[in-house]
Write a protein that binds this DNA or RNA. Structure first.
Length: 113
DNA sequence: CATATGACGACAA
DNA sequence: ATTGTCGCCATAT
């Protein structure tokens, strides 16, 4: 779904979001699996930060042995996200749209004065 | 229209 | 921490 892709693209670098979270924001209540479906079927040349989407538990959704797992993990680490044993501290990296808006917008305003 | 499928999530053992 | 169940929901058959 287009809506889902848009939402995923809003996740800032260095932060992550859960499938369920994306679904909610995209307006699909309890549509976590739809997010998975959407990400799985991304067009060829997409530019969607799919790697910033992880399970609500903070674990990467791929099999820890498969190649995809490592790819996602690396991408995250590159962005500064700590991933130990395939686990991510959600309390620390969870993306909070509302908070970001409350934090980043005013910040730019403060710079002026 | 009936089933089967997941890059899920919450919860009980 | 692990594992199994069940609920969810857009798509695919």
């Amino acid at each position: 779904m287009q809506r889902i892709r848009e939402t995923v693209c809003e996740i800032p670098k260095g932060r992550v979001a859960s499938y369920g979270q994306i679904a909610e924001i995209a307006g699909i209540h309890r549509g976590a699996r739809q997010v998975g479906y959407t990400l799985r079927h991304l067009p060829k040349g997409h530019a969607v930060p799919w790697h910033r989407v992880v399970q609500s538990s903070g674990r990467i959704a791929f099999d820890k042995n498969g190649p995809q797992f490592e790819r996602q993990q690396n991408r995250l680490i590159i962005e500064g996200v700590t991933v130990s044993a395939g686990r991510i501290d959600m309390n620390r990296y969870r993306w909070q749209p509302d908070l970001d808006e409350l934090l980043w917008k005013p910040t730019s305003a403060w710079d002026e004065s």
